[in-house]
């Protein structure tokens, strides 16, 4: 299934995290766990779940009069997509200089150069 690359809000993440933990829940159950501590209404929780459903992140099934929601993507996949999405938006700017990566994510050393350097390192190890 195609998943849009989302940037999720705090409540959306909380709903997803809860559904990954309990597998499925309806709006009232979600509200008991997430809405009451935050002092927000069932309607807010319901619309958050609907939004996630429309984004393709939740699936739903009608049970009696209520929808029961469950996650449509794994946590690993969604989080990987989220990071990809943000990193893509850093492209072309100077943001990369404001964070530190062990090796530059954008610029690759030629394979031939890598082989030459690996040989030099092995040679140096051999001399020890």
């Amino acid at each position: 299934m195609f998943v849009r690359r989302p940037y999720l809000g705090e409540l959306e993440i909380a709903v997803m995290e809860h559904l990954w933990a309990v597998e499925d829940a309806d709006a009232k159950a979600l509200h008991r766990q997430l809405g009451t501590p935050r002092d927000i209404s069932v309607n807010t929780i319901q619309s958050t779940a609907e939004r996630l459903y429309k984004k393709g992140l939740l699936s739903r099934e009608k049970v009696s009069h209520a929808y029961v929601y469950s996650s449509a993507v794994t946590r690993e996949r969604l989080m990987g997509e989220m990071i990809d999405n943000v990193v893509d938006k850093l492209s072309g700017g100077s943001t990369e200089a404001m964070l530190s990566t062990f090796v530059d994510l954008a610029e690759r050393v030629e394979v031939n150069t890598l082989d030459r350097l690996a040989e030099l390192i092995a040679e140096r190890r051999g001399k020890r």
């Binding site: 990193v87 850093l90 492209s91 072309g92 990369e96 200089a97 530059d104 994510l105 954008a106 610029e107």
Partner: peptide, 8 residues
């Protein structure tokens, strides 16, 4: 396929 983050 990483988009270029920087032009070196």
């Amino acid at each position: 396929n990483l988009a270029p983050l920087v032009v070196g």
